[in-house]
Design a protein around this nucleic acid. Sequence first.
DNA 1: CTATTGATTGAT
DNA 2: TCAATCAATAGG
Length: 193
Amino acid sequence: MNTLPKSFLNKSTIEVAKALLGKKIIHKNPSGLLSGKIVETEAYLEKDPASHSFNGQTNRNSAMFGNAGEAYVYFTYGMHHCFNIVTNKKGIGEAVLIRALEPIEGIELMKQFRKTDEIEALCSGPARLVQAMQITKEYNGINLIDKNSPIILSDGNNINEDNIIKTKRIGISTGIDLPHRFYIKDNPFISMK
DNA sequence: CTATTGATTGAT
DNA sequence: TCAATCAATAGG
């Protein structure tokens, strides 16, 4: 079970968003191991009106400006958290939003956290997977490619370019023309179906 | 200090 | 289609 090499993040945010498909997120939770395969992502660039970083660094989004491979966890809509993987160099506010996972380990725990028995509903949405994986804002800014972190990014499959669908992003009101959402073709765990 | 707005979800 | 629910941000 290896963490992703640092060089993995040494690419553009768009490239990283695509390359993350098929990789794994593992949370060493006190109640048990929780893990899932990334099946859907969205890229947020610094010059993107839909990005939190568009208007510069603030207290809320400062984690986005950290080093690649760190976590950016934010709270929104008064009730939800979302989980991002920071990309690009320190000082540049770019990140990849994880929108959906295919549950692998700790499925019974996820059912409890999410209060549902439907496997396909456990992690098929940015706020859903955060609930299922028990990610909290305490993890904002932690290093995800350090073996000692509670949450790590792990190696997995590489998805063939032919099986990556590229579309417009979801839930935003600006920048809707940018095709920065990526997901694995024919995967049943995609959000907003 | 007050008002508005979300990178959403779940119920109606 | 709409309510839930609140921190960050914009405006005065």
